[in-house]
Amino acid sequence: MTDLLQFLTAHGEGLVFVVVLLEQAGLPLPSMVFLIAAGAMVGAGTLNGPLVMGLALAGALIPNYVWFVVGRRKGNRILSLLCRISLDPDACVRLSEHAFARYGPATLLVAKFMPGLNTLASPLLGMLRVGTARFLLFNLAGTVLWIVVSVGIGHVFSGQLEQVAAWAAQWGITMGLVIVSLLLGWGAFKYLQRQILLRRLRVGRITVDELQEKLASGEDVVVVDLRHPLEREVEPASIPGALTIGPGELQARQGEIPRDKDVILYCS
């Protein structure tokens, strides 16, 4: 924290803009920590409060709008790309789709506080053809809320800045090492878990050519469309004769899938 405070003092409000811009563009940076630290420095009179908040707002809104436009133009592919680079791709897609199916653009009000959702919110809303004015309005509200809360937390605790800095000087490196080790361990665990799952699935997959051949020859196969309703809204075309079952309905409707036939599953 001491280094962070010194760094912020030296480079001022511009650094807040750059860090928020890069984080909202997709880089894994802890911009909320920077905003809290900046808030503490605003409270201590080292930084200019309105300028910090104005630059943080600009730094967030610009990449958010760019991602919104990219999502609108590239659709599902951009969501797959963003989820592929996430630590838990399956949870990433499920979390985003369920949140947006339930709350719509209002999800933007809390998205910035949730790292996975934050990255996906703008392209997903673009992909779902949410109106630009609606997106801008909800995104502005969510971003202002995020900045005010983060800077506010720092401001409230600005009186304890010296104590925090002293504590960080004493324990900062140890705590940092523990946190980095836990993150690396978690990342390695999720990576291994996914590789094992993919290896098991790879054994029994079917290609488009093989499926087309089976259908053309009249073979009795059951094709199941497992896409989320939101994905089907974006791409309504489906494989002819496919049984449509949303991922959330699988438990309740698995009885509809015959046990004595070849079953082919697909999603996006």
Binding site: N76, R77, L197, R200, L201, G204, R205, I206, T207, V208, L211, Q212, D225, R227, R232, E235, P236, A237, S238, I239, P240, G241, L250, Q254, I257, R259, D260, K261, D262, V263, I264, L265, Y266, C267, S268
Partner: peptide, 30 residues
């Protein structure tokens, strides 16, 4: 894997999903 646990043993995922099917311009409905 979830379906296999429910007794649907002859189950196989489609490589590339609907995107791969559409890329090949194969027939669709909907």
């Amino acid at each position: 894997l979830r379906l296999q646990r429910h007794g649907v043993l002859r189950v196989r995922p489609l490589v590339g999903g609907i995107d791969a099917w559409l890329e090949r311009k194969l027939p669709t409905e909907g």
